[in-house]
């Protein structure tokens, strides 16, 4: 990581760290911390999706499905078998990894955007399975009374505790992803994104790398699912449908898909927009979503971070922000 990235990393961490204490004294914004918990959970997903879209140049319409796989694995294993929530988290992640691998290998072997089509169908199938396997998932009526997470015997039910837990996970994942991007793998990924044929000619195993990034994105979504499950303590298939996959994509797009910071910024912004500021739109929300997606795709393909880096940093910040390179 460059010094600039370290600077942003520590700065963001500090900002996230003091945020609860900034909003707590004010009744009118005290619930912002609840929104930020969900924003943190969603950021885990969008970081993975950003790696996939921005660096591997692939699109996945099944992130909500992997989110659901993680969530339901946690929910089912803890309620029906009484297992420890912490122990089952890796199970969900492993399951998502295997599924993503099985889906990714044939889809990514082919050139082009077969992954988009395959994940589209797969996402809907998962949703149907969640609705139909009533004995396991509770079906459309959902699964209630899922236990909360505990640390050293204390149940994590307060928002503050959960907030720090989720965001700590986000920063660990960010750190991991930055390390990956600055390793040989990261350089190879960038090469694929620039020119796949050239990269292949240089001996970069493009298909294998893409599958690996896809698996990583699925694992992160499953982790987010586990966090979601034990926070809300209720699951129903509605939280894991195609609309949510589109929302995750939108978060990454708005922030800027070629930057992990863009994913973070976009997710926090869109979570607030969807839950707080667009409330005034009510029924217009769906239109607002479509319009934002369209405008960003047409006029701002590099997302909001490109604006910020253009606006505030005239020198070297741009490449490091927008491309994650040093």
């Amino acid at each position: 990581m460059s010094r600039k990235d370290w600077g942003i990393f520590l700065g963001t961490m500090l900002l996230i760290g003091v945020f609860p204490w900034l909003v707590k004294p004010f009744k009118a914004v005290s619930h912002y911390i609840d929104i930020m918990v969900f924003a943190g959970i969603f950021t885990l997903i969008s970081i993975g999706l950003s790696m996939l879209m921005g660096y591997a140049g692939q699109i996945s319409m099944a992130q909500a499905a992997f989110f659901g796989i993680g969530a339901y694995t946690s929910g089912i294993l803890t309620t029906r078998f009484g297992l420890n929530p912490w122990l089952v988290m890796p199970v969900g992640m492993l399951l998502a990894a295997v599924v993503a691998w099985l889906l990714g290998i044939p889809a990514l072997r082919l050139k082009g955007h077969y992954l988009a089509m395959a994940t589209l169908g797969f996402g809907v199938i998962v949703h149907i399975v969640l609705s139909e396997e009533v004995n396991w998932t509770g079906g459309p009526s959902g699964m209630a009374d899922i236990p909360s997470l505990t640390i050293a015997g204390t149940r994590l039910t307060s928002e503050i505790a959960y907030y720090y837990l989720v965001w700590a996970a986000v920063f660990l994942v960010l750190l991991f992803c930055f390390l990956v991007l600055h390793s040989r793998v990261g350089r190879a990924l960038r090469a694929i994104h620039e020119e796949q044929t050239a990269a292949e000619a240089m001996g970069v195993p493009t298909a294998r790398l893409k599958v690996q990034v896809f698996v990583l994105s699925a694992v992160l979504a499953a982790l987010a699912g586990s966090f979601y499950t034990h926070y809300v303590t209720f699951l129903n298939p509605g939280s894991f449908n195609l609309m949510w996959s589109i929302r995750f994509m939108l978060m990454v797009m708005v922030g800027g898909m070629q930057s992990l910071w863009g994913a973070l910024l976009g997710t926090v912004l869109m979570t607030f927009v969807g839950n707080e500021w667009l409330q005034v739109f009510a029924d217009f929300e769906i239109l607002a979503y479509g319009a934002i997606l369209l405008v960003v795709a047409l006029f701002l393909p590099r997302g909001l971070v490109s604006l910020i880096s253009q606006g505030f940093g005239s020198r070297k910040v741009r490449p490091s922000l927008a491309d994650g390179s040093s």
């Binding site: 009744k27 009118a28 914004v29 005290s30 619930h31 609840d34 929104i35 969900f38 959902g142 928002e159 809300v232 209720f234 129903n236 509605g238 939280s239 969807g274 839950n275």
Partner: peptide
């Protein structure tokens, strides 16, 4: 469900 969860917390806190 997510939005509902947030809305109820807002009613309680704010």
């Amino acid at each position: 469900t997510t939005k509902c969860n947030l809305a109820v917390k807002k009613l309680i806190k704010k």
